[in-house]
Write a protein that binds this DNA or RNA. Structure first.
Lengths: 361, 361
DNA sequence: TTGAAAGCGCTAACAG
DNA sequence: CTGTTAGCGCTTTCAA
């Protein structure tokens, strides 16, 4: 870590010009074999690693794509990391850490997709989770570091987005389609919920249902609810004959809402706007001895892993989260290649996955 | 995105020098209020965003920390992302996507911890997943982009690591302690397994156990096995009287190994080197009608979410994965602050979590 | 408190 | 195929 070698050092040691050193990295085949070997040898001897900062400056592109999503810092203590020796091992009865929330699970997968696609296309991926109050600073910070930015819908004010978009391509992830200047990548929330709801209403012939929506600021919830309403129309069920409650996308919220529902007459079906909520509903149903699916059908949305392992396993609409991440990167690189493109909207297909909580009829 | 404004543009528009513009961002309080206001106004009008590349070049530090981990590309099709309209929604009976593998789950959490700690300390986080053959290129690529690099043990050859370490601090995540030049962050694998095994051997008085180890190239497996052996010694159980099998850390592997075990006399306890394996064991046991914990005790290691939701829920050793990520970043920034530090090893504490598969006695 | 000027390490014409 | 030469946009002394 002493004196970091540069092109100049490599050039000198191998008796060529710095331009040739640069070429060895940028376009190896324009350099004669023996020359290249000499350079490469010097590179190795010296431990040379090209500086991305210098390259970025000179080439006016960083080859980095940024991903911005809501922070999850609330759950993490602010305490400093200490180097405690871990020799004594406590034995506890229950898991102290709460289960990670749905948004995280969701975003981990999106991140994975973005990561894969980015490196595939020769870009590095920079991730930033938005801490509440520092959002603005963060966004411009990473905007200055990348060639393009993918942002989860509703996590950044439009003004800020527009500001950033003057400089680099911005793509919005999830949420409703918007006819504006940004590229947009999302899943078929509406059609997905509509299809699933129709399966409940028509194939199962269950009309006596309750719908548990998510928070009003969710980027996707409104579309799902609309899909549900479409299904009511499709199936000739009056909106007034079904109940729509609102919860908060968490398992606990699902439990609470289920309790509210069960305070009244027991419905034959409970459709939830996401899987976490549905898992909470299942918890309460099991605890009350209400059988699923015999007494009540339950469905979720997202396709998180926990839904596959629950008892009963959860019928849901599976979102292609990894693909969402990939598509976001794709959209950015496409615009980088051709900035004159019209704003594009990619809608990725979803799948209704039938499991025990609402089985195939 | 037309003509990206620079310090020069801001300086001109606000009638100051570029040095002052720089100061407004680097050390705002050394600039007189009115001057600062003028500059800030120009910044806004122009849509100026500082270039991280230029800054990195000039300041000789990027303020980025890198995280390198094994790739997960095998599972993702190489097909291009297409912009298919998602209007038709298929209805399928089972989830087509396999469950994400343990390593990913593990790393998602580590990543989250690193992300949190990095931004907290004013660093951006760059992530790279190693594609098999391009590992070397990837590692040096990201090494040129960051001020420090955290690498999962065994994913990068030591030579390469040493090469990179000539330039920037490198910290190794997980795996056995190694008395070498690198900083190292890991969890108490050995003591954790030892404590859990002793609980089975002593508190439950179950000596007739089988241990299912993981792949030999796992960074952590050897330590856990050693911890198990320590427990045998602690409890006065002859090594020759217990069986040690090797599996591959996957749920399927756990199933296969359980089948092998059950081909012989049924043991009273099955200790697994990770949770996924244990979940596979539970699958087979349930299928054969063998009761857990009444007939057989089962334990895992890691503390993944799925273990909490399984039936029966899984007794395990919980690793602080988020903390591992944080600690890694902490180690890097510490060395950045003081490069003369001796190589350090951080060992984070673990916890035995008792659940149904091996309950408190 | 502000300005002038010298780089930081590399890329990309343009010559040769 | 290789060398020369301008910058890229910002930080950072050193003076004023």
């Amino acid at each position: 870590m002493a004196k970091v070698p540069t092109v100049y050092d490599v050039a000198e040691r191998s008796g060529v010009s710095i331009a040739t050193v640069s070429r060895v990295f940028r376009s190896p085949d324009t350099v004669r074999e023996p020359t290249r070997q000499r350079v490469l040898a010097a590179v190795n001897d010296l431990g040379y690693v090209p500086s991305a900062a210098a390259r970025g400056l000179a080439a006016r592109r960083t080859n980095v794509i940024g991903l911005f999503f809501p922070g999850h810092d609330e759950t993490v203590p602010d305490q400093p990391v200490d180097s405690a020796r871990g020799d004594t091992v406590p034995i506890v009865d229950d898991d102290p850490a709460g289960s990670p929330d749905a948004e995280n699970l969701y975003f981990d997968e999106v991140l994975r997709g973005a990561e894969i696609e980015a490196w595939r296309r020769g870009f590095a991926l920079m991730v930033a989770a938005g801490r509440g109050n520092t959002r603005e600073a963060l966004v411009t910070d990473i905007a200055g570091r990348v060639d393009g930015l993918a942002v989860l819908a509703r996590t950044v004010p439009d003004e800020l987005l527009a500001y950033v978009a003057r400089r680099i391509p911005v793509v919005i992830l999830a949420g409703a389609q918007r006819a504006d200047e940004f590229d947009h990548v999302s899943a078929s929330n509406g059609p997905g919920m509509r299809t699933l709801a129709n399966y409940v209403l028509q194939s199962h012939g269950v009309h006596d249902v309750v719908y548990i929506a998510g928070p009003t600021d969710s980027p996707d919830d409104a579309e799902r609810l609309a899909g549900f309403r479409d299904a009511l129309a499709d199936s000739g069920v009056a909106e007034s004959s079904v109940r729509v409650l609102r919860s908060d996308f968490t398992r606990d919220g699902g439990r609470a809402t289920a309790a509210r529902i069960l305070a009244g007459p027991q419905p034959r079906g409970i459709l939830c706007s996401n899987d976490e909520t549905a898992l909470g509903v299942l918890d309460v149903l099991e605890q009350r001895g209400i059988r699923v699916p015999e007494d009540v059908l339950v469905t979720g949305f997202d396709g998180i892993a926990a839904g596959r392992h629950s008892r009963p396993s959860l019928t849901t609409v599976h979102q292609p989260m990894v693909e969402l991440g990939r598509a976001a990167v794709h959209a950015i690189t496409a615009r980088l290649d051709d900035p004159s493109l019209e704003p594009q909207a990619f809608t990725l297909p979803v799948e209704v996955v039938l499991r025990q909580s609402c089985p195939r009829v």
